[in-house]
């Protein structure tokens, strides 16, 4: 990771020096372990604060929306796919961007690491594909990174950037033959009462903080439907029906656009697995339209077209 970091700093410095970009969007070290923070670097000297490790799960595309300057952005596989969607949806122009692509080996799930230690965690470091955790009492533990990956990363099909101008390392091998939809099939096979119960339980702890929405680069509307007031058809409180409505419709808004970057799930303070909603729609898009989000600049997602020969078999 340290090589990645050096390379990122160098590229950022060069781009700023050569005045190719006005600003570089990357990560800096956070105040607590495993919480790197997005940051904007505008002068070459400050590029030294840019970091890279397995705690850069936040999708930086979210910070591109409607920006006017020329930006160098550090982007993992999933991030680049969101950048593609952003360009297609006029949220940023391709010419404004220098995409610094990071071939990604996966981000770690801090909840999983927290679960491994009894005491508070003081430091987490990584070497090759091993993670070493040190707690506040100085006890350490070393584990394989693959055991503590974010769940979206362990089923990721696009680790390498799909679009980039600079590359910080050689491309990594993509995983083959992964089953992305095991969980979804399980839900699909439930009887409707079971499903109802499943969703009810799943969302019972949601506090409607909208952190999931705010972390998502797809959610850039000036007024989100949940905030609509005229007419106000959706309650603003903690009514379970309203909470479910929020999640269902948000997922629908992400249909054909979500890249399963995991930012939403990562942001949730209540550890709710909201990706299950978006993944269901992702699966439908693959099966019905042969579509995966964010892979091409010259096509729009399936729900953006009107075609007379769209598949209809699901209409019963």
């Amino acid at each position: 990771m340290i090589e990645y970091q050096k390379k990122i700093q160098n590229i950022a410095e060069r781009l700023l020096n050569e005045k190719k970009v006005d600003v570089v969007l990357g990560f800096k070290k956070g105040t607590i372990p495993m919480m790197n923070q997005p940051c904007l670097v505008r002068v070459p000297d400050e590029t030294q604060k840019l970091v890279w490790d397995s705690n850069c799960g936040i999708n930086l595309t979210n910070y591109l929306t409607n920006r006017k300057e020329r930006i160098g952005i550090i982007a993992k596989g999933c991030d680049t796919r969101n950048i593609v969607t952003h360009i297609v949806e006029n949220k940023i122009k391709r010419e404004q961007l220098v995409i610094i692509g990071v071939p990604c080996t996966g981000m770690i799930d801090k909840a999983k690491i927290n679960g491994l230690m009894v005491n508070e965690i003081a430091e987490v470091s990584e070497h090759n594909q091993e993670i070493t955790i040190t707690d506040s009492r100085g006890a350490t533990k070393t584990i394989q990174k693959k055991e503590v990956l974010q769940s979206n990363c362990s089923i990721c099909k696009y680790k390498n950037p799909v679009i980039y101008d600079e590359l910080v390392a050689d491309l990594v091998p993509e995983s083959k033959d992964i089953d992305r939809y095991e969980d979804i099939r399980k839900i699909e096979s439930m009887a409707s009462s079971e499903k109802f119960k499943f969703f009810e339980d799943m969302l019972s702890t949601c506090i409607r903080c909208y952190a999931c929405r705010n972390a998502c680069p797809l959610c850039y509307c000036p007024t989100c439907f949940v905030d609509e007031s005229k007419p106000q058809w959706l309650g603003k409180g903690m009514d379970p029906i309203d909470i479910r409505t929020f999640h269902f419709l948000r997922a629908y808004h992400c249909a054909g656009r979500c890249t399963d970057c995991g930012s939403c799930e990562r942001a949730c303070p209540m550890d709710i697995t909201v990706r299950q909603f978006t993944k269901k729609l992702e699966k439908d898009c693959v099966e019905l339209f042969g579509w995966e989000a964010g892979l091409t600049l010259d096509k729009r997602p399936p729900l953006d077209h009107y075609k007379t020969n769209d598949p209809q078999s699901f209409i019963k």
Binding site: W233, L234, T245
Partner: peptide
């Protein structure tokens, strides 16, 4: 039917 918005389903059920 193009006018059919998911909001209408959700709202009606709600």
């Amino acid at each position: 039917t193009g006018r059919m918005h998911p909001k209408f389903f959700l709202s009606a059920l709600r």
